[in-house]
């Protein structure tokens, strides 16, 4: 059990999230089952009022959740000082079996909540609120994911053992490791870079062709290919160390917190890319989403490509 003030703060906020989440969930179920826009009954009228509360709660949770996610990583970095062997957040994530799942769940939930908000914004623009039933249906699903995230987080923090030795990211993210992560190192770097830049080329292509489904799918693939290439290839140039592959260490001050920028760019770029495919939008909104997605993905690629190039200019060799 580890109970630093940071962990407690996260747990307190989780308790509040759970409390409000349950309220939103109950209301969502009611709305989902009984929503009938054409009805003039008292109950429909109350439901309409309650939909505002639900939307406010979900907005609140999302707005706090995003900075809290950064704070969570910050906290893991800090705990790594106390845990023996851990150099950065990676060690803490690996310290328990739940860490990896929690991390994935957190990222997934942020995408889902952001998607919900876009849907909601689109919904309230229309007079007859065409998405109301769908959006509360989505929240019912999202609620279970969200609650399992909260529970998992509680379990994770309570099962961290301070006196147990954990792995350092240097051993976790290396080709000699036996975990699932190590299998990505089997991929040839050249192939990986072709995939990464090829994927990006597809995004550009579909951007000009305005193929929204293909654009969204290529963005989805881009999330995976960019993270893998970040770990295998670009990370080594950020650290200027051929053996260091950790996707967490560059979140630390030694690398000017560049990781936060990298992940923010990737999130915004791919998220808006996904939105174009999944939300029916007005014409100008779609174009706006295309542009935002393109811009951030482009910045992401530029930023990451700069690292090896600058390294090559400085040292005259590739790693």
């Amino acid at each position: 059990m580890i109970l630093t003030p940071e962990v407690l703060a996260i747990l307190i906020l989780n308790a509040i999230f759970a409390f409000f989440g349950i309220i939103a969930f109950v209301l969502s179920v009611r709305i989902f089952l009984a929503w009938d826009l054409n009805s003039v009954s008292q109950s429909q009228y109350i439901l309409e009022k309650q939909s505002f509360l639900t939307a406010t709660i979900i907005k609140y949770i999302f707005v706090i959740k995003v900075p809290l996610f950064l704070f969570f990583i910050f906290t893991l970095d800090k705990i790594s000082n106390v845990l023996t062997g851990a150099m950065c957040a990676a060690g803490v994530v690996d310290a328990t079996v739940y860490g990896t799942y929690l991390f994935m769940l957190k990222i997934l939930n942020i995408y889902i909540f952001a998607y919900w908000l876009v849907l909601h914004n689109e919904d309230i623009k229309h007079e007859n609120q065409p998405y109301t039933k769908i959006k509360f249906g989505i929240f019912i699903v999202a609620f279970f994911l969200f609650i399992s995230e909260l529970i998992l987080e509680g379990i994770m923090f309570s099962s961290i053992d301070i006196d147990k030795m954990v792995s350092c990211c240097g051993t976790l993210y290396s080709s000699s490791a036996t975990s699932a992560i190590s299998s990505i190192f089997a991929i040839d770097t050249d192939v990986l870079l072709y995939v990464f830049y090829g994927n990006f080329a597809f995004i550009i292509l579909f951007y000009f062709l305005k193929q929204k489904y293909l654009f969204a799918i290529s963005n989805l693939v881009f999330i995976i290919s960019s993270i893998v290439s970040l770990i295998v290839f670009f990370g080594t140039y950020i650290y200027e160390l051929p053996t260091h592959h950790c996707p967490f260490c560059f979140l630390q001050s030694d690398y000017y917190y560049v990781g936060y920028l990298i992940y923010a760019l990737l999130f915004i770029g791919t998220f808006y890319g996904l939105v174009t495919g999944f939300v029916k939008n007005s014409k100008e909104n779609i174009i706006k989403n295309y542009k935002i997605s393109m811009l951030f993905n482009f910045l992401y690629v530029i930023l990451l490509s700069l690292y090896p190039i600058v390294f090559y200019i400085k040292n005259g060799v590739w790693l």
């Binding site: 003030p5 940071e6 703060a9 996260i10 307190i12 906020l13 509040i16 409000f20 009022k49 505002f52 509360l53 406010t56 709660i57 609140y60 706090i64 900075p67 809290l68 704070f71 910050f74 800090k78």
Partner: peptide
Amino acid sequence: LQTLFLVFFLSVPIYIAATIIPSWKVAT
């Protein structure tokens, strides 16, 4: 900076959370 964030997360979100339901009641 982390201390400031920590205190921020412990105070501001909790205050706003406390006002959600009353504000909604007012607004409707």
